[in-house]
Design a protein around this nucleic acid. Structure first.
Length: 600
RNA sequence: GGCGCUGUAGCUCAGUUGGUUAGAGCGCCUGCCUGUCACGCAGGAGGUCGUGGGUUCGAGCCCCAUCAGCGUCGCCA
């Protein structure tokens, strides 16, 4: 904040230093707290730069002291006086201005505040619903100020970096056309075209492809996206993406840009060096070693296929699993032999909640083996083979699940994360990035047909243009960037050939007339000299959340919705007057709204 | 949509086996206090115990329903 913006004497609270001694200043801000000693009144004033202490002495400035003693938390004040050093021994090292104070000459009260519903100063724990209802007060709290300032710096770093790399920021429309697949769309009724609707974009995907066709070789946007899906704790109906796209790209080219961008973000916003280039894993590798396509690489604990150890086992459950061609996947819990039977039982219950049929465990204690398996199943041969496969040491425990291979890996992968959390291995101050590559192009959807793993515009891997018989064997030119077990972003080289795009739509079973209706403009655009293109989209909210180590993305969004996607401050969504509905030619199939007075 | 946890003063919470007038800390109000910074001291106000119903001589506590907040799963190219 420049001083000239608010008056010649004005100084930021956090900026006062001993060198200012004797200077007449004015500080403006909110009353953080007051300490009235009768003969001396201290007022702590907070602005966005920090806190300054002002002192009123009734003997030298009776009017100012009287006003100061009337001040209460969150009153807005402008205080004038001379800066002076605090008496030796009374400095406050917790404040940047803590060596100084302002000797009050005058107090002007710019606005009184009601008693706030929760303390604004400090970091008191307050129920989130209340914080959201009074979000403007919650945002006044120092940690929210810090979070949003960091978010600003992160986004600014993106703009600076991509600008430097020759990217243009181009806006795309918010009122677009509904498409039936993917997530549900938010609809916006059209008044001018009664009975017709716009949709809010789930992402600028199609528009950025069209910008490539248009010849903007490098595009980006800090784009708001909307998805009308069921609420989940870490989801918002509207969220922000860094959306970028390049013409004539290679996967390596996109990866280099995004790595550079993320490194710049972390350097500028956090002063952290993230160590690019990032590690890389194939999708198959990630699944095999971590049971997830977004592995948390802050710790090892790789999954181990232990099926061979149980060939010919007496343990009926595993014998049956091996017989059925299932896999037994294990994870080593270092030091886990110290767990109590109760502990293991609790882990088994957690695994059951995830859908595991059971959780087997063997603990290598100093007093010998402890296990959920029957004694008869703990043949020396089995134990030796298990030890050789897992490298479990004395004091460790091996936890195992048996299931169809992918499912077993997924379950073991969840257990890996669960154990790591219990063992405090998920350190929020560490940032382990990786790329996941070589995704399948298609996957089996719940109806049993094939669907796109990501979206239908992803180009097949080089060499598979002929699209051979088994669609599930096709690889995609797709890449995810992952941080600490969270997918930050996902991108691909797109299909730029209209004929190939048609073939992919056909393989997905989209009827031809539907394709024409929904994607006709895209196919047409591709046919007018679309360049090869590809890009990526990254979730800003998630990135910033991880940067600040917050529990929820709501901690890094200024005005988020609650878990039911409602705005507790404005009370949105809300019913609207019937006249508005009439204008839109809409009729609502609900009983009449209750009178407003009955609602909270 | 399912499941779980929570709901008591402005805030954060305690509240015994169902039993007299429902408590604490902070905040708020009043007074005192010249070096505090979570100032201190003394006094005071403040409660439809989320809401509705039920059981009971008696319900903050037990039962049913409902609302809200949070968490979690389904869902989310």
């Amino acid at each position: 904040m420049k001083n000239s913006a608010v008056g010649p004497l004005h100084r930021d609270c956090g900026s006062l230093h001993p060198q200012d001694e004797g200077t007449e200043v004015e500080i403006r801000g909110w009353v953080n707290s007051t300490r009235d000693h009768g003969g001396l009144i201290f007022v702590d004033v907070r602005d966005s730069s920090g806190i300054a202490q002002a002192v009123a002495d009734p003997r030298t400035a009776p009017e100012a002291a009287a006003a100061a003693s009337s001040l209460r938390s969150e009153d807005v004040v402008a205080l004038r006086g001379a800066v002076r050093r605090r008496p030796t021994g009374t400095e406050n090292p917790k404040l940047t201005s803590g060596d100084t104070e302002v000797a009050l000459d005058s107090v002007s009260i710019l606005n009184r505040s009601l008693t706030p519903p929760f303390p604004v100063h400090g970091e008191a724990d307050v129920e989130e619903g209340l914080r959201l209802k009074y979000r403007y007060l919650d945002l006044r709290r120092p940690h929210m100020q810090r979070n949003l300032a960091l978010r600003h710096r992160a986004i600014k770093a993106v703009r600076d970096y991509l600008d430097e790399q020759g990217f243009l920021e181009i806006e795309t429309p918010m009122l677009i056309k509904q498409t039936p697949e993917g997530a549900r769309d938010f609809l916006v009724p059209s008044r001018l075209h009664g009975g017709q609707f716009y949709a809010l974009p789930q992402s600028p995907q199609l528009f950025k492809q069209l910008l490539m066709v248009a010849g903007f070789g490098r595009y980006f946007q800090i784009a708001r996206c909307f998805r009308d899906e069921d609420a989940r704790s870490d989801r918002q109906p509207e969220f922000t993406q860094i959306d970028l796209e390049m013409a004539f790209p290679t996967i390596e080219g996109v990866i280099a840009v995004v790595e550079g961008m993320l490194a710049h973000m972390f350097r500028q916003a956090l002063a952290v060096d993230v160590g690019a280039p990032f590690r890389r894993l194939s999708h198959a590798d990630a699944m095999a070693r971590y049971g997830s396509d977004k592995p948390d690489l802050r710790f090892g604990m790789e999954l181990i296929e232990v099926t061979p150890a149980f060939e010919g086992t007496q343990f009926k459950v595993f014998a049956a699993a091996v017989q059925a061609g299932e896999s037994i996947v294990g994870v080593v819990d270092e030091g886990g032999a110290a767990r109590s039977r109760r502990d293991f039982d609790a882990l088994a219950r957690v695994a059951a909640e995830w859908g595991a049929k059971g959780l087997a465990w063997i603990a290598f204690t100093p007093d010998g083996l402890k296990s959920s398996l029957p004694k008869a199943a703990l043949e020396t041969q089995t134990i030796d083979r298990l030890g050789a496969l897992t490298h479990a040491k004395q004091g460790d425990a091996v936890l195992m699940v048996a299931a169809e291979r992918t499912e077993a890996r997924t379950l073991a992968g969840k257990m890996r994360l669960h154990l790591a959390a219990q063992n405090n291995l998920r350190d929020a101050r560490r940032f382990e990035f990786c790329w996941v590559l070589d995704f399948p192009l298609f996957e089996i959807n719940p109806e049993g047909g094939i669907g796109p793993m990501h979206h239908p515009f992803t180009a097949p891997a080089v060499g598979s243009e002929s699209l051979p018989g088994d669609p599930l064997s096709l690889r995609a030119q797709h890449y995810d960037v992952v941080l600490n077990g969270s997918e930050l972003g996902s991108g691909s080289i797109r299909i730029h050939d209209a004929a190939l795009q048609r073939r992919i739509f056909a393989m997905l079973g989209y009827p031809e007339d539907e394709v024409a209706e929904r994607f006709g403009f895209l196919l047409e655009a591709l046919a007018f000299g679309a360049p090869p293109h590809g890009g990526m989209a990254l979730g800003v909210d998630r990135i910033v959340q991880i940067m600040v180590g917050a529990e929820s993305i709501r901690e890094v969004i200024a005005f988020p919705k609650n878990q039911r996607f409602q705005d507790l401050m404005m009370q949105a969504p809300a019913r609207v007057p019937k006249a508005l509905l009439d204008e839109l030619r809409l009729r609502v199939d609900l009983p009449p709204a209750p009178p407003v007075s009955q609602r909270s």
